[in-house]
Amino acid sequence: MASQGTKRSYEQMETDGERQNATEIRASVGKMIDGIGRFYIQMCTELKLSDYEGRLIQNSLTIERMVLSAFDERRNKYLEEHPSAGKDPKKTGGPIYKRVDRKWMRELVLYDKEEIRRIWRQANNGDDATAGLTHMMIWHSNLNDTTYQRTRALVRTGMDPRMCSLMQGSTLPRRSGAAGAAVKGVGTMVMELIRMIKRGINDRNFWRGENGRKTRSAYERMCNILKGKFQTAAQRAMMDQVRESRNPGNAEIEDLIFLARSALILRGSVAHKSCLPACVYGPAVASGYDFEKEGYSLVGIDPFKLLQNSQVYSLIRPNENPAHKSQLVWMACNSAAFEDLRVLSFIRGTKVSPRGKLSTRGVQIASNENMDAMESSTLELRSRYWAIRTRSGGNTNQQRASAGQISVQPAFSVQRNLPFDKPTIMAAFTGNTEGRTSDMRAEIIRMMEGAKPEEMSFQGRGVFELSDERAANPIVPSFDMSNEGSYFFGDNAEEYDN
C-alpha cells in the first residue's frame, strides 16, 4: 500500500510504541512475548500442572481467558453494579484439565481477579502490559475465525453469508486497541457500523446529549479505520460520505453494504499476525530463551520457528480426527482463516481442507461434555516452508469459486491468482447506482469489472525454506488448481455463540 510509510507498523501498534527502528520493534515485541511466557509459567505453578498438562491447549485457553477477564475493567465495573446470582464479580476462573488415573478430569478453578492481575503485572515488570493482553485477544479471535462461520451475524446486519472472507476479527472485544483495529476485516468494521446506525434509528437519543457526542466521535473513528483499509480513492470518498452524514440511517447502511461487497474484489488491507497460545510461549521462556534479547516478529519467520520446536497437546472428542484438529489450530496460529487453501497447503506441506470436510468441533470443551471418553493427542503445528504475512489485500483475480465463501483475504505475501467468483459478486451490483453516491458507485463498479483474471497478485513473492531466515531465496510455489480455494466452501461450520 502506498501510504505504508505514514502508518505505524503493526509491531508498533502491538507494543504501543512511538516510531521505533526494526531492532527496537523486535525487542519490544519480544518483551511482550516474554511477559506472556513468564505469566503462563507462574500460572502453571499456581495450578500445580504437570509439564504435559501445561502444554494442553484447553488449559492455555482457560488461563488466557482468566487474565483477560481480570483486566476487563468495563465488564468488571458492570458486574459490580449489576450483581447477578451466583456470579462473584471479583473472581474469575474456568475449567482446568488434569490427568488422573490414566483419565482426563475437569476441575473448575476460581481465583481472585486481583490475584491474577498481581501475577500478570509481576510477570511483566510491574506494568499492565496491555500489548500482551491484546495479543491474547487476537489469538482467540484468530481461533474463532478458523472455527466458526459468522453466517447468522452477517444475515442479521443485512449482509450476504458468502462475504465471510471479510469477517476477520469479528469476535475481537471493543477494547483491543490499535492492534485489534489493524486485524479487523472490512466486513467486521461494516458490521460494527451498521449495528451502531441501527441503534440510532431505533433509539432517538442515541446521537443526542453528552453521551451522543461520545457516540458520534466513536462512529467517526470507526469510519476512519474502515476508510484506511480501502485502497481505492472511490471507496475512500464513499467512506467520507458515510462519516460526514448528519443523521446516519438506511442510506448509510446501503452504502456500507455496497462497500463491503466491493471489497470482495477491490480488497481492503487487513493486517495478519501470528499470535500463538500462551502454552507455546511459556515452555520456550522456561527453556531459557530470551525473546527480548533475541527479538521477535509476528509477521516473519519467528512464529514458524517457534511452532517448529513446540509440543502442544489437545483434548480430542471420541469421533474427532486429531489431524483435522491440528489443521484448525495451525490455521489459527498463522492467522489464515480466509487465505486461499492452495497457498496454505503449499506452505504447510500437507493438504489443507475446507472447514466442512474437517471432523472436528471447536477447541474448547463445553462444561456439560462427558470427560470419560476424552483422549488427548499432539497437535501437528509444523510447516514445510515459511512466508511473510501481508497486510495488503493483493490485486484481484477471477477463479472458480464456491457456493460458500466467494473470495479470499490473503494472509501471506505469496504470488498467486486470487480466487473470487466474479459473476456471483457482480450480480449483486445491478441497477442500484442512484442517489448521492452514484458517481462513486459507478466508478467502483467500473474498477471491479476491469479486474483481470490473468493478473498475478504479489508478483514474484515466494515462500522460503525454514533454514532461509533472511528470506534470501524465494520459492514461487505451484498450486494444484483442481483443489478448492475457499475454506468455508459450501460450508456447515458451527455458528459462533458468545
Results as ranks from 00 to 15, higher is better:
Asp101His: 02
Pro277Arg: 13
Thr215Ser: 03
Asp34Arg: 14
Thr378Pro: 02
Glu53Ala: 06
Arg389Leu: 08
Ala129Val: 13
Val312Pro: 03
Ala85Tyr: 14
Ala129Phe: 05
Glu107Met: 10
Lys48Ala: 03
Thr151Lys: 02
Ala472Gln: 02
Gly356Gln: 10
Arg162Val: 00
Glu495Tyr: 15
Arg342Asn: 07
Asp255Phe: 11
Ser457Val: 01
Gly209His: 06
Gly393Val: 12
Asn202Pro: 04
Leu259Ala: 01
Ser217Trp: 02
Cys44Leu: 08
Thr62Lys: 01
Tyr496Thr: 11
Met222Val: 09
Arg382Lys: 05
Ala286Cys: 09
Ile197Trp: 08
Tyr487Ala: 11
Gly288Phe: 10
Ala237Ile: 07
Val100Phe: 04
Met105Thr: 02
Gly180Arg: 08
Leu264Trp: 09
Leu172Lys: 10
Phe258Ala: 01
Leu166Val: 00
Phe258Tyr: 06
Val329Trp: 10
Asn21Thr: 15
Asp480Trp: 02
Ile116Thr: 07
Glu455Gly: 06
Asn211His: 09
Asp240Pro: 12
Ile475Pro: 04
Ala403His: 01
Met163Lys: 05
Ile257Ala: 04
Thr92Asp: 04
Ile365Phe: 15
Met440Arg: 01
Gly93Pro: 12
Thr134Glu: 10
Ile388Lys: 00
Ser413Thr: 13
His140Thr: 11
Lys91Ala: 02
Glu454Asp: 15
Arg106Leu: 15
Met163Asn: 14
Phe304Val: 13
Met196Lys: 06
Arg175Leu: 13
Met196Asp: 09
Tyr487His: 15
Arg384Phe: 04
Val408Asn: 09
Ser457Ala: 01
Gly460Thr: 09
Arg19Cys: 14
Arg175Glu: 10
Glu14His: 04
Arg199Thr: 04
Gly394Leu: 10
Arg106Trp: 08
Ile444Arg: 02
Met66Ile: 05
Val343Thr: 13
Ser217Lys: 13
Gly460Val: 12
Asp145Pro: 08
Asp468Pro: 08
Asn211Val: 15
Met374Pro: 15
Lys351Gly: 04
Leu259Lys: 07
Glu252Thr: 11
Arg55Trp: 10
Asn142Lys: 09
Glu73Asp: 08
Gln168Cys: 04
Pro322Ile: 01
Asn370Lys: 03
Ile444Trp: 07
Leu172Ile: 02
Met43Ser: 09
Phe206Tyr: 13
Arg162Glu: 10
